[in-house]
Design a binder for these strands. Structure first.
Length: 411
RNA sequence: GCGAUCGUAGCUCAGCUGGUUAGAGCAUCGGUUUGUGGUACCGAGGGUCGGGGGUUCAAGUCCCCUCGAUCGCCCCA
């Protein structure tokens, strides 16, 4: 029989690689509490319409990357390609509206049928933070501050916050029309990719990587020419708030977002350390999303971060090591060790037991798992009510009283 | 979905222009040391050379297909 293979684009991780992901989630959980974001859990699967209606039918995510299937009841189900839509669905269907403005955070798997690359997987993991039901620019600032602090606590440097506004719906529509007109007139000089983008999503031409597009992009109308007074004020309040909070940012007038639901603030924390997958945290304001799900008009902001991408940028976390490994020799000693081991662990001492092979094997085991001490229990020692405590770093060894250990554990 | 590079032991890799039983280091296991690890020495196990087909007297090495990884495009966290 040929061995079974993993599904393409999935990961099975052991040791440091797994610890890295856990370290990112742990840091996020710490910071999110400081900012008063409550933990939520949302389903991995949703009705396909939840994503199709919000993310945008024409986006790549919906049109060719979703894991969708019909369940046994004939319903179209989709594995979440992101968190925002599902959280908004829960906001509506679970009565979370009563908590608005609601600050929530979550993390877990997301699924996209893409070509795997470094920092890009078919099952990947995201951190997600959302503020639902807040129209104020302070919400945008708070969310950006959360992301900024998370990166700092992870010890990640060298990221840049790229910030833009996509304006309100009037702004965005007017700008989009002007861009469409501009690019249509220069369609002859555009790259093949951009010609295709012209009808589907003209905004995307702005961040084209094709050199032949650049002159046309440079002469394209900018969002600032179309910003309504209200939209300009809003963006001004966000940038002023960032400055007040001491968060470094850069204006990126051509930054657009692929997903249809974004309005006003759009941002990405970028790095040049991950090749083509340079976006490490990204998000923005999505005031129209909840209406697209059939709910009332509800302003909201949020972001998602790629856990794998962050995990690749942090220093390796310290592996857990037991403080002590018990090394029993003989049947009575095994029994005593089992009792001692349970006591140590109940007291919160990271302890392990080497139960295979001769003393050499057992000590070698204690050393291999990185223990600070080995506690050697033999019948001789047991008869004297003692054990040998060996400091594995220095090699020093001395007798300790089992009664004293028992007393310490009892206290 | 498109283009490029790559795929040899658990891991990192060596195998020159195709030529006898495919190697090393690390890891694992055993021994020197049947109650003393981490250092040292000796030894062992472990490979359908990603898979399939083809060319050839002969293929890890050349050709085709396929699967996977990496890099770029697309897209995105």
């Amino acid at each position: 029989m040929t061995p079974v293979q993993p599904v393409r684009g999935t990961q099975s991780l052991l040791g440091e690689d797994a610890d890295r992901l856990a370290a990112v989630v742990a840091a996020f959980d710490r910071v999110r509490r400081l900012y008063g974001f409550r933990r939520v859990e949302v389903p991995t699967i949703e009705q396909t319409a939840v994503f199709a209606r919000t993310i945008g039918e024409t986006t790549d995510v919906v049109s060719k990357e979703m894991y969708s299937f019909e369940d046994r009841g004939g319903e179209s189900i989709t594995l979440r390609p992101e968190f925002t839509a599902g959280i908004c669905r829960a906001f509506l269907s679970e009565g979370w509206q009563q908590h608005a403005p609601l600050k929530v955070a979550t993390s877990g798997s997301a699924f996209r049928y893409e070509r795997p690359q470094k920092g890009r997987f078919r099952e990947f993991h995201q951190l997600d933070a959302e503020i639902i039901g807040a129209a104020e620019p302070q919400a945008d600032v708070e969310l950006l501050a959360l992301a900024d602090q998370l990166l700092k606590e992870l010890g990640i440097s060298g990221t840049v916050l790229k910030l833009n506004t996509l304006g309100d719906p009037e702004t965005r529509a007017a700008w989009r029309d002007a861009l469409y007109e501009h690019f249509r007139q220069h369609a002859g000089t555009l790259s093949e990719d951009s010609k295709a983008r012209l009808e589907r999503n003209p905004l995307r031409i702005l961040d084209s990587k094709a050199h032949e597009d650049w002159p046309v992009v440079d002469s394209a109308p900018t969002i600032d020419d179309f910003l309504t007074a209200a939209a300009a004020d809003f963006f001004g309040a966000v940038t002023a708030g960032l400055d007040a909070a001491g968060i470094a940012w850069e204006r990126a007038p051509r930054l657009v977002r692929g997903l249809d639901y974004y309005r006003h603030t759009a941002f990405e924390f970028m790095t040049d350390q991950l090749g083509a997958q340079g976006t490490v945290i990204a998000g923005g304001r999505y005031d129209g999303l909840i209406e697209a799900l059939g709910g009332p008009h509800t302003p909201a902001v949020g972001w998602a971060a790629g856990i794998e991408r962050l995990a690749m940028m942090i220093d390796a976390p310290q592996p857990e090591r037991p403080s002590v490994v018990l090394v029993p020799l003989g049947e009575r000693a095994e029994h005593a060790a089992l009792s001692l081991l349970a006591g140590l662990r109940r007291q919160g001492v990271a302890a392990d037991m080497a139960y295979r092979g001769n003393m050499k094997k057992r000590l070698s085991r204690a050393n291999a798992v990185g223990a600070a001490y080995a506690l050697i229990l033999g019948d001789d020692e047991l008869d004297r009510g003692e054990a040998q405590l060996k400091d594995l770093a220095s090699g020093e060894q001395k007798a300790v009283s089992l009664d004293l250990i028992a007393q310490a554990l009892g206290a």
